[in-house]
């Protein structure tokens, strides 16, 4: 597994955890039908901040841990070659395309739900959920492309 694959896997696991946390807190609200704006605002804020922090911290930690593992494995310290090349950029772009498609479907379905009489807070909650789902779909697409060889 290459450095990029490990990095994407860490990001995907983080996104899955954030999505699980989001649904764990959102489902009781949906079931009770008690759409309290303040509770949802707090949840959205936590999810946005967690996504940003986890993405940055996860990337830094993965770099550090992989450097340490590489140094231990080769029994000497040298700058690890964590470079990205044109193929990585191409895979990144393809991943982003999948993210945009997933997110667009999410936004469209949220708007449709609103048109058919669902509360606006549900619409925005769905958009947030699809935001994280889009990240996960992008991560899966990227890992698949790395595994397949492109």
């Amino acid at each position: 597994m290459s450095y990029q694959e490990k990095n994407i896997t860490v990001a995907m696991v983080s996104h899955l955890l954030i999505l699980a946390y989001y649904f764990f807190n959102l489902f009781p609200i949906i079931q009770s039908g008690d759409w309290v704006a303040n509770r949802l605002y707090a949840l959205w804020l936590v999810v946005i901040v967690a996504t940003i922090l986890v993405t940055i911290i996860g990337s830094i930690l993965t770099n550090i841990i992989l450097s340490i593992v590489e140094a231990i494995r080769s029994r000497k310290y040298e700058d690890p070659r964590f470079i990205t090349d044109e193929r990585d950029h191409l895979i990144e772009l393809k991943g982003i395309r999948i993210e945009y498609i997933t997110y667009s479907i999410g936004v469209l379905s949220s708007i449709l739900a609103f048109i058919f009489g669902q509360p606006p807070l549900l619409m925005i909650s769905t958009i947030f959920a699809f935001g994280i789902l889009a990240e996960i779909a992008g991560d899966i697409a990227k890992i698949t492309l790395y595994r397949r060889g492109l």
């Binding site: 990029q4 070659r81 060889g149």
Partner: peptide, 19 residues
């Protein structure tokens, strides 16, 4: 050539056309 080994593997396998 300044790429990763994975790119060379993909090139040799005919799975990737380089720039």
């Amino acid at each position: 050539v300044g790429v990763t080994r994975q790119t060379i593997i993909a090139l040799e396998g005919g799975k990737y056309a380089p720039s």
